[in-house]
Write a protein that binds this DNA or RNA. Sequence first.
DNA 1: GCATGTCAAGTTGTG
DNA 2: CACAACTTGACATGC
Length: 305
Amino acid sequence: MKDYKGLRLGLCCIFRKEPIKFRQITAKALLQSHREEQLLLLSDICLHNVKSLQKSLYFVAENEIGAFRILSPLFPRLTHPQVGYQLEDLPDMEIIRNGLEEIRSFRQDHDIRLSFHPDQFNVLSSYRDEVIRNTIRELEYQGMLAELVGAEVINIHTGGVYGDKESALNRLQKNIENLSDPVRSRLTLENDDVSYSPKDLLPVCESIGMPMVYDVHHHRCLPDGLSESEVTERVVSLWRSLGREPYFHISSPRNGWGGRATRPHADYIDPADFPSCWTGMTATVDVEAKAKELAVIKIKETLKS
DNA sequence: GCATGTCAAGTTGTG
DNA sequence: CACAACTTGACATGC
């Protein structure tokens, strides 16, 4: 049984070199077939993706990577209004469920931290009922999956401001209260690079006991007067007060810090971008870099020396 | 084979 | 005002 003390690095969703692929399908493609055929196709893809997730965890364990972010469309189009489905509808449902259970126990035995990061369409601060409804449906799907595979975190961004941040944050809090327990207990808020900084989110998170995922790259794109070590300290005590391990994100800009286009992610992490106050800490750091597993392994080596 | 356009969904900032 | 960016890629189509 692996037990991570100190920094635990996380891999996000997919691989660059390692031959582990996830399959996809669009609603448009599905709509060309009848329901029975759709479900056969979807079953194939879901089964393939569950096997790929198993392989991902084997790779992660072998390379002493401590966390893995599961890509959102693991079960593609599950909540789509026209072609959506339930696990029970899939012909291979039993093998799929067994696969998910195997993932859950492997994760536990190897102390691998699993997370979800729902897409940008999930906005709990929206003033539109339809957006909220769709968001909740998607979050509930990810919550159900999180239960099945033993994932601990469902991390989202706050979303829009709509010209009035305070009202938006109030709507966010109200909508969070109405989530089911599997979702609410896993939900985390991440600071973004255009609207919500740690200074905006920390008071909310601290008041409702919601952990905050600290993305230091976003913080550098959207400075708020708080220093990185100040934010780190508050984020850490927030997670610890909930008895959980803190969660950070790191990435490097593809085009350097000088120009305007700092947002796109680079292939690797520049060690100089890694906050010095994080080293030696017991925490998880997801590595958001385009070279994926290669970037995680590389920064891991660098941090060791 | 390989290059290219398309994919459910929201919001913001840029050109 | 259209479009890219966001965590980004995979797939279908056409040459």
